[in-house]
Simulated scan of single mutants.
Amino acid sequence: MRLARHLRRAGTRALFVSATGTGKTLVSIRTADELGAHLVLFVVPTLDLAAQTALAWRRDGHGEYVVIVSSLDTSGRDGLVAARVMSTTDPHALGGLTSVVGQDEDQIPALTVICTYDSLDKIEQTQRPGTRCRRSTSRSWTRHTASRDGPTRSGRSSTTPSTSAPTAAST
């Protein structure tokens, strides 16, 4: 995949722009897979798109932990409950969760975080002292993106967000 090859080079970034319904989410998922990401941040404009994105990751075979950071309470949505999608607005809980992503026996192998624009401040707060977010997993998150530290797909590698700029953003 050309996008993944491009993003493997240090300091690169990409912006993926395409019309509604043309597969931006799937391109982001595939790019994350190609990059072998264990921690992915996917930023979306609406609550409905957050739910839709979480379900798209599941339909694509991703079994890693998925958490939506927004005012959306996933416990009130049967489809999200069935798909084992969590939600939070607590930066400390999110920081704690991101701090245990890794390959050790006591860690979770991958995490996909889906966040609305309105809740990006929660992502920023995970990088403040006292939120338990390890420095190695702390990233400058980007919108509608896949990163370089990323999630796994049913035990296989997948993509993650870039450290300083968008990797596969859409508008």
Rank of each mutant, 00 (worst) to 15 (best):
T160F: 02
W141A: 00
P166Q: 04
R58E: 07
S70Y: 03
L3W: 14
R9W: 10
A14I: 12
S70A: 06
L97T: 08
V17L: 10
R59D: 07
V81K: 13
D60E: 10
E64T: 00
T142Q: 12
E124L: 07
T137I: 05
Q107Y: 04
G36P: 14
V44K: 08
C115M: 15
H62V: 10
L97W: 05
T31G: 01
I123E: 00
E105S: 07
R84V: 08
M1K: 14
H62I: 12
A10V: 15
D33T: 11
H144W: 05
T145M: 04
T88W: 03
S28T: 13
T142D: 05
R135G: 06
L111W: 00
L47T: 11
T74E: 01
A37L: 05
T74R: 01
L47H: 08
T152K: 03
R30C: 15
Q125P: 02
V27H: 02
R143I: 06
D33L: 14
D90P: 03
P91N: 06
D118W: 06
S158F: 11
A10P: 09
S71I: 15
G61W: 04
R8C: 00
S136W: 05
R8S: 08
V43M: 02
L26D: 09
R156K: 15
R135T: 09
H62C: 01
L111F: 02
S164W: 07
L47N: 14
T89Y: 12
R128Q: 10
T131N: 03
T171K: 06
D106Q: 15
I29A: 02
L55R: 14
G61T: 09
I123M: 08
L41Y: 13
R58Q: 05
M1Q: 06
G11F: 04
T12C: 14
E105W: 13
L97E: 02
W57V: 02
G21F: 12
D118F: 13
V43N: 00
S138H: 06
T160K: 01
T167N: 04
V67F: 04
A56D: 11
G36N: 03
G96E: 00
G76I: 00
Y65E: 03
I114S: 01
P161T: 02
A110F: 07
E124F: 14
A93W: 04
A146E: 13
V85A: 03
R58G: 03
M86S: 13
D33P: 00
R77D: 10
D78A: 08
W57K: 01
H62P: 01
E34Q: 12
P151Q: 10
R132E: 07
H144Y: 12
G155F: 15
S138N: 03
T88I: 07
G102P: 09
S140D: 09
P161G: 10
L55A: 04
R143K: 08
T46D: 13
P166H: 00
V66Q: 01
H38R: 05
H62T: 15
T116S: 06
L26C: 07
W141S: 00
V69I: 08
S75P: 02
L47A: 08
E124A: 11
V100E: 03
